[in-house]
């Protein structure tokens, strides 16, 4: 804790603010990636290796890339429109109100009063054991869903044969890619 946490937190916050306020969409996406990395660093600092690496793998490796792809495929990256809209005061007020309510609720809940549990040392093996025993049903369900998505992607690709160029293919397979990516990740969970 202490200084490392402060650095990581500052980095995460600054990059998150940058992601919201920068003019250039690609810059926003890149700062979002930095935010993801900061969150992953936070997990790692808490000794949660598995979650940290999964965060990097999924969010930087897949989600950030997907966002970037989406930006590039949908419109030109130069859109110098004003970020701040006319109703921004309203927006800030609402955001602050939501934040206040949430803080109040969290502080008054029983979780805040509870004693800090002894710091667990979650090894990957423990996570795997838990996933395979206590949480096996949700895991199987998610795994099945994602495998179905992957196989669906493969089947769409398989039947996309006659006379169509890459264009069609790309459009078809881009959304399913991220899913398949996550699937690969889930398979990790499945195994460990």
């Amino acid at each position: 804790m202490g200084i490392t946490f402060a650095i990581i937190a500052a980095l995460t916050l600054v990059s998150a603010i940058a992601a919201m306020s920068l003019r250039n969409l690609v810059h926003c996406a890149l700062s979002l990636a930095v935010t993801f990395a900061g969150i992953a660093a936070m997990y790692l600092q808490l000794d949660a290796q598995f979650v940290g690496f999964a965060q990097i793998l999924v969010y930087i490796g897949a989600v950030a890339i997907l966002i970037v792809f989406a930006i590039l495929l949908t419109r030109s990256s130069e859109t110098p429109q004003p970020v701040i809209s006319r109703s921004w005061i309203m927006g800030i007020v609402i955001a602050l109100a939501v934040f206040g309510v949430l803080t109040k609720v969290i502080l008054s809940s029983s979780i805040a009063q509870r004693e800090l549990p002894a710091k667990p040392a979650p090894t990957v093996r423990q996570i795997g054991d838990q996933l395979m025993t206590r949480y096996v049903l949700p895991l199987e369900a998610i795994g099945l869903l994602l495998t179905a998505a992957t196989i669906g992607a493969v089947i769409i690709a398989m039947h996309d044969k006659k006379g169509r160029g890459d264009g069609g293919q790309n459009v078809n397979s881009t959304p399913s890619r991220a899913e398949a990516h996550q699937h690969a990740d889930e398979t990790h969970n499945l195994i460990t």
Binding site: A40, F50, A54, I56, L57, I60, G61, I65, T123, V124
Partner: peptide, 18 residues
């Protein structure tokens, strides 16, 4: 010698795309 060594490997590998 990391517990999740291979996951680490793929995680850092994924950021090269960016």
């Amino acid at each position: 010698d990391m517990d999740a060594g291979i996951l680490f490997f793929f995680a850092v590998g994924a950021s090269t795309e960016l």
